[in-house]
């Protein structure tokens, strides 16, 4: 029981970290990014390859993962930042698909669909069992809290205020002399870095990385986390990460309690419940459980 909860705490941290990244891109920057799974894949594979093939120590590998994800995010944003929301959503969805395809087919580099086993993690080897799991969960949540505090400061700083202004109306922001594209690209890159770091954490936690992990369902889970928690603020993303992990796990027990249906029907009900939860949250709590507090018009734009 305890071991399970500790494991799920690590998974919740990873989801929360991705939700924070998405919050920066979407919540603050207003860019509908459905390509999270792609950024997570870049981070996970970067960390895995550096760790397994080159023996790079995990802090460096994770840093490199974040930087590479940021780089790919910046390129994607540079190509697409001028697009309006709906277009951007579809293009980024395509980005994630292409990353998954590349991971599946560039066998020489990524090991193809078989993935890369033996990804190193901090303290693997020196700690075992629950001790390792607990240490990992603590490290993951430590990173989440650091990222959240940084993001909270960023949100309150001029950068965050400008970003919000761009989100509300980029023409006004442009007229006010803000270089809209540069702000957008930076926000996208920084958010992608967090998603990439989360991908690296996931690869380390499982000791494994494979293309199948980076499906559209991953993106949907993180979007659900952010929407449930409340986009725009920082603590919503954290709460959302916990809630979504709790929800997806709780549905297992709900499915176990249904003896009258076949295994495939129980599985269908379980996924259906998760989809329904997202729809209900969007209706009942459109601003999330911890909504963003309304702020005064930034003085930079007055």
């Amino acid at each position: 029981m305890l071991a399970y909860l500790v494991q799920m705490a690590s998974f919740a941290a990873i989801t929360a970290l991705m939700a924070l990244g998405l919050d920066l891109i979407w919540g603050l920057g207003g860019m509908a990014n459905l390509g999270l799974a792609g950024s997570a894949a870049v981070g996970a594979y970067a960390a895995a390859l550096l760790g397994v093939k080159l023996g790079v120590a995990w802090p460096l590998a994770w840093l490199a993962a974040a930087l590479l994800a940021a780089g790919s995010g910046a390129i994607l944003a540079g190509l697409t930042a001028r697009l309006r929301g709906d277009y951007l959503a579809i293009v980024t969805l395509g980005f994630a698909e292409v990353m998954q395809l590349a991971a599946s087919n560039e066998v020489w580099l990524t090991g193809g669909t078989g993935g890369i086993p033996g990804v190193p993690a901090p303290w693997r080897g020196s700690l075992h069992g629950l001790a390792f799991d607990a240490a990992f969960a603590a490290l993951a949540w430590g990173l989440v809290v650091v990222a959240a505090l940084l993001l909270a400061r960023l949100g309150a700083a001029p950068f965050g205020r400008v970003l919000r202004a761009i989100r509300e109306d980029d023409t006004v922001a442009a007229v006010a002399g803000k270089r809209v594209l540069r702000f957008k690209v930076r926000a996208f890159a920084a958010g992608s870095a967090l998603v990439g770091l989360a991908g690296a954490l996931g690869a380390a936690l499982e000791g494994f990385v494979a293309p199948d992990s980076f499906s559209a369902l991953l993106t949907l889970t993180v979007v659900l986390a952010l929407c449930a928690g409340g986009p725009g603020g920082v603590w919503g993303a954290l709460l959302g990460g916990v809630l979504v992990t709790a929800l997806t796990e709780a549905t297992r027990f709900a499915a176990d309690a249904l003896p009258a249906v076949s295994a495939v029907q129980a599985a269908a009900l379980r996924q259906g419940m998760i989809a329904l939860a997202l729809i209900l949250i969007l209706h009942l709590r459109p601003a999330g459980i911890l909504p963003e507090r309304p702020r005064a018009i930034p003085k930079e734009l007055r």
């Binding site: 998974f11 494979a210 991953l218 599985a267």
Partner: peptide, 23 residues
Amino acid sequence: LTSEDSETNPDAGVKAAHKLIDI
């Protein structure tokens, strides 16, 4: 017997395996 769904996805499989083993 408890039947879990791997969702043909390594992450989901790992979570389900933890549930099967620890719970």
